[in-house]
Design a protein around this nucleic acid. Structure first.
Lengths: 211, 211
DNA sequence: GCTATTATGTTGGCATTGCTTACATTAAAG
DNA sequence: CTTTAATGTAAGCAATGCCAACATAATAGC
């Protein structure tokens, strides 16, 4: 039995502290090598204590991801409040991912694809923000049905895919080293070109003029 | 001691078979739960046999990813041989990722960011193919120096980011379910719009020169 | 205030896994 | 034919996820 004479039996904020420690740990060691036991030790608590707050390791990772979405939404909301348009959103998105690469990766990992939607309330919020911003800039209606809704879904997927891919390329350092380093921030701002329904693009769908 | 009277002591093609089995395993159970021991058992070989061919688990995953790049390059080359232009490349890229989602994810995972370049010879090949195709379509020179090289790097990053993000959005099922399913193939074909230097984009770039 | 209930944390333990060391078998080189 | 290198095996350690039984503290009902 350890000497816990100076420590409280109940931590009191274990759940929150585990999330905090987890965020640091994944950025330092990578997501794959995150260990609940090690985290418990860091928090000065027994090896199975985390299981009182999370059913299993995957559930903890989902909670971590959700925290990430909360932080991202917070950032995006701040930009929106400052009157930022779509390019500013792109910049903020890129900045968030660069500042928390492992967290961003986790937020878009395989795990989340099958996670229960109820656990990812914050995820929906941040995506709604992005979607609304894109819709406003492009003059689309968010809840539109039929053809209009389908067209908006396409434009949203194009814009989101663009910024998401750009960000992943950067944080995973996948861009070939034998080429000059791209201007990531500038490219992120170009999000506008993808969200707004450009005449050229729409015509191309029908007639495909280039090449 | 097991009865191996009918089995050869030496498997003979263990390395290749592990790669084969590994590809199936990650698509079935996910990358995280891939176990070298389990794979060894599947191959009918002792638990530590794989370590004769791969220093550790991560090295095996890198080898798997490299095999993925080889397959992708093979596909892209086939499309090129058939005279396919950039939209066809986009389609092929999307098709490959959809057919092997876990493999594609692995090819762009955190692990690879720090992998020794020598282990990823095939990766460079497939990217070179994509880069050449984009350069030809956009009228760029691949090895250009200075401003031209930097501009090409930006256009390449934009195009690659676009298709990569689109693909990831799809295979990770991240696109919100409350929107209509996007036309993924059609969006992949739009790769042209990102690789070709569009007048509007270039003017915008000039108006906001660098940073 | 006292007690019952619930939330939270601990201890011990099992199975799985990655990986190391020492040894066995076979193929290939000389 | 002998030697050597390549390939596979056996045994075992440490770390981890997770379960079951128990301990402690906070809280609610009376």
């Amino acid at each position: 039995m350890k000497d816990r004479s100076l420590e409280r039996y109940h931590h009191g904020e274990l759940k929150e502290e585990l999330i905090r420690l987890g965020r640091v740990a994944i950025e330092r060691d990578g997501i794959a090598s995150l260990s609940l036991r090690a985290l418990a030790a860091e928090a000065g608590v027994s090896k199975t204590a985390p299981y009182r707050h999370f059913p299993d390791r995957d559930a903890f990772l989902v909670a971590l991801a959700n925290e990430g979405f909360r932080l991202l939404a917070q950032e995006l909301e701040r930009v929106l409040a400052e009157g930022g348009a779509v390019p500013a959103m792109g910049r903020a998105y890129m900045a968030f991912a660069s500042a928390h690469p492992a967290l961003y990766r986790l937020m878009h990992s395989e795990l989340l694809a099958n996670a229960a939607p109820a656990q990812l309330t914050e995820a929906r919020r941040s995506m709604q923000l992005l979607g609304e911003s894109l819709a406003r800039a492009g003059g689309w209606k968010l809840g539109a049905d039929g053809e209009a809704g389908r067209r908006f879904a396409n434009e949203a997927a194009a814009a989101w895919g663009y910024i998401h891919g750009l960000v992943m390329l950067r944080i995973d350092r996948l861009f070939p080293a034998w080429l000059p380093e791209p201007d990531w921030e500038g490219l992120a701002e170009r999000l506008t070109a993808h969200s707004a329904p450009r005449a050229s693009t729409r015509r191309k769908k029908a007639a495909r003029p280039t090449h």
